[in-house]
């Protein structure tokens, strides 16, 4: 077996194994660590393609920075909290999902197998690159010539992400006003456990909602709310105010 094929198979197995781990493990920390395996496998594949710079970046940025950030977030949220994933109660839907996934997987594999040796008729896509030009330079050229516009507007995407993250993590004022649309009442309990201390604003929130004259959830809110909200109230009241 040629060494490239061997490397590819090993790295590919690491990638796929890691990806399966991301999906299948129940503990979020294990999921994040499996992601490292996938990213590492991709880095090895980059090395096999002689893209050393990309491989280094892959390890430093993804495995080094991004997954660590994931782990921070998971740890900060608390590992136990993320256990509340329920199975889809509709058996039919679950079956359809599994079947659909299987068909998709089979289709993707079939596409790759049918492609065989020659898929494009375009030799340059698979021909070896000129070893005289280092890969950093090659990457720089690609980014600043053909892909300069895509590269620059990525900044816009990051801006959207930052604005979105800031906006959505800002604490809301007052109780939710549409809890009556969730008749089983579970939405309220979830909301209270997510927003300890927010009940301080209860009075003003009710005043707002009652101006509309039909806020039915106000009373239940105070009843159920105190039990869950009380212990954390003192700790978080500063954040809300």
């Amino acid at each position: 077996m040629r060494v490239e094929v061997f490397t590819f198979l090993v790295a590919g197995a690491i990638c796929v194994g890691g990806a399966l781990g991301v999906v299948l493990f129940r503990n979020p920390v294990h999921n994040a660590l499996s992601l490292v395996a996938t990213l590492f496998g991709v880095a090895v594949l980059f090395i096999a393609q002689e893209a050393y710079f990309l491989a280094a970046i892959q390890v430093i940025v993804y495995a080094g920075a991004i997954v660590i950030l994931f782990l921070f977030v998971i740890m900060l949220l608390g590992v136990d909290q993320a256990e509340a994933i329920e199975r889809d109660p509709f058996r039919l839907r679950r079956t359809i999902t599994v079947l659909g996934g299987a068909v998709l997987l089979a289709g993707s594999v079939a596409i790759l197998l049918a492609a065989g040796q020659r898929t494009t008729g375009r030799e340059a896509a698979t021909a070896p690159l000129d070893p005289a030009v280092p890969d950093v330079e090659r990457l720089g050229r690609a980014i600043f010539t053909d892909y300069v516009f895509a590269f620059e507007i990525t900044a816009l995407l990051l801006t959207v992400a930052v604005v979105g993250a800031v906006v959505l993590t800002r604490r809301s004022t007052g109780t939710p006003i549409d809890l009556e649309e969730f008749p089983d009442g579970s939405a309220y309990d979830v909301w209270v456990s997510d927003h300890p201390g927010a009940l301080v604003d209860e009075d003003t929130a009710d005043a707002d909602a009652d101006a509309d004259g039909e806020d039915g959830s106000g009373d239940d809110a105070t009843d159920t709310g105190d039990a869950d909200g009380q212990d954390d109230e003192s700790a978080d009241s500063e954040v809300t105010s």
């Binding site: 596409i111 790759l112 049918a114 492609a115 065989g116 898929t119 494009t120």
Partner: peptide, 9 residues
Amino acid sequence: VTQNALLLG
């Protein structure tokens, strides 16, 4: 393209 599975996919 003689083998167009990739393209169709």
